[in-house]
Write a protein that binds this DNA or RNA. Structure first.
Lengths: 208, 208, 208, 208
DNA sequence: AATGAATGAGTGTTCATTCAT
DNA sequence: TATGAATGAACACTCATTCAT
């Protein structure tokens, strides 16, 4: 990422900055949580390290004991969020055999998660600009997981045999936008209802 | 938006600084085009006015003859993109009576447009952070147009009578993500095929 | 040079920052002079850009209109000083045929120059740490010029035929240290007298 | 020296923090050696306490058990180097009665020492900026020792009676620059040969 | 309209030093 | 003595914006 301010970077090899004591682990966690709030509220560029450390009740300099840079912190947060979203989906899907029921459960769970974590979108979305590679990987992985779930169904003769990557991306797009509209922004339609409607769409389309 | 730099910001409401002469109109256009490229390549924050004016072959100071601020320029670009996307949809939909055929045409047209304008997403997506109100309005409008199109169909008894906002957002999500995956990123599936598959999904769902 | 503070450097290619207007040229000169004083008084690391611009009566940001970095400014200054020392020597040597008379003139002129420009040593000496390549080149060039002058004499049978690089460096060392002791630090022995004594040493050694 | 960072600096006069145990003495030595390498490689300002303690395999905090500050450590190193250079000269001069033979021996020994200790110059030279008083004292002492040696010769009628401080500084300058050029930088002329040539210069000058 | 020099608030990062354990 | 987490002052550098010409 270009355009950062300040003088040259040193050649010093990047040393792992993992805390060695329990106290250290706690401080690192505090910083991560404060950062999630700050980034969620103000976005990456309008967030500042001072702001984050003040929120965390930690000295400015302590930040660099735990993270290499503002970007590195952001990346850590994106990875965290990405993994949590994946977990939510996996948990919701677990143990359901019917493809469409399964997707209904995943959609509902995801909407619920977005409702609870309004900062999710601000962080994942901004990764497009701050850490494009990770951002792209996030969606490719998610689409891959959806495709895999659908394929399981295809093997079982539950969905049309030509269902593939296009449908996976379509389904992901639905979930993401419904999560934005009815999760993050809020509204009168709840996660359950959204799940049901997506499932209906997948089951029979929109046609009368 | 916080975090702006530089001398006092005026509170004067943004009046379009419209050029009076032909030469002026040309300069303004040059700047807009340069900005689209710069923002598309580097994002809002890593783009600079100097960069844009250099690309445009215009003196730094001249920028402020045409735009009130960096943000104002960005807003102009977002509005432009947003309108063009709307136009593309309207043009594609025009004159088609069958709901699903119509959506198929819109999807194909949109994917084709995204393929041609890779900077589209970088600009619309970043509006979430630079100009959230406009960004939200962009999607609300788009969803509204989709809902209206579907409703036309509902009135005609072509789609289920309970199809509403949820389905509109779902459809918009599909289009957006398919445009990203198969338009911007590129791939072996063309706009026509994508349109056909979305239409199939809308027509009969995924179930066998 | 490692260890500078601040974020990453941009990839932006180094554009020449030469002033295009007369006003600009004047500002650049003001900055250079202020820098010579600041670096001379406090050394490179304890000098600050704010300090330099304040001395120059110029805004902080203006600095970067003329110099790429603190280091670049320092390099410019070293080059300037180095060239001036060379000029002083050349001017003093010009037109004198006798080798030893010539060196006497150079030594006197150099001591006088050092007396007038106390910041000379602080700047050249610190280049060893800030810009080692230039620093080394400075001395290699100076030694080369001395060797050339002596060789002229050797060709004329004025000095021993085995006089070479070793003697050039020895002579340079004398001049530098005498310039420090009797020029910069000051004292009761003037440039003329120093020149005479060095010439005496070169003419007949120290032996009785 | 200005520009120090970190929490309040004590004004307590520098008391040597001498280790009480054998283990402590060893740690202190390790730190000194690591510092000589680090300062030699990177210079004072680009060296860091973390870097030094890491090289030494010692915890950061332990540093302050042995040295009051980064500067105090540097001063200790300068003093050490300065003393060693003096010892080398004294050892080389010991027992030689003839003035010029004696200086020849000193020069050769010094060049050899510089060849072996490339960090010598980086440390002494940087003292000009970090600890100017010590730096000046170092050269004044060295010049004083040379003057004393020459005076012994003058008393013995071996050198001209007017030989004094100027000649001492001239000789010191030769040695220092020859040590840099042929010792630290290296080259094809060895210490012995350098000594011989300096002696020749002192004995009869350069004139044919 | 055009030019480009001038302005200065803002911020990421470094690192010597302190201190609780 | 040893450890390593915590502290915060200091500073180089960026760039949107203004303004004299």
């Amino acid at each position: 990422m270009a355009g950062l301010r300040g003088p040259k970077a040193t050649d010093t090899p990047t040393v792992e900055r993992s805390p060695r004591t329990e106290r250290g682990r706690k401080t690192r966690r505090t910083l991560l949580d404060a950062a999630a709030v700050e980034f969620g509220e103000r976005g990456f560029h309008d967030s500042s390290i001072v702001g984050i450390t003040q929120r965390a009740g930690v000295a400015l300099g302590s930040f660099y004991t735990y993270f290499e840079s503002k970007e590195a912190l952001f990346r850590a947060l994106v990875a965290d969020m990405s993994a949590r979203v994946g977990d939510v989906g996996a948990a919701a899907a677990g143990g359901i055999d019917d493809v469409l029921e399964r997707e209904q459960a995943v959609t509902s769970a995801f909407i619920a998660f977005a409702t609870e974590h309004k900062e999710l979108y601000r962080i994942i979305d901004e990764a497009e600009f701050v850490d494009p590679a990770t951002w792209r990987a996030h969606y490719e992985n998610a689409a891959g997981r959806i495709a895999a779930r659908l394929r399981t169904g295809a093997g079982n003769n539950q969905v049309r045999s030509d269902v593939g990557e296009v449908e996976a991306w379509a389904l992901m797009g639905m979930n993401v936008f419904l999560g934005l509209r009815f999760g993050v922004w809020g509204g009168d339609v709840g996660p359950e209802e959204i799940g049901r409607r997506v499932a209906a769409l997948l089951r029979e389309g929109l046609a009368r």
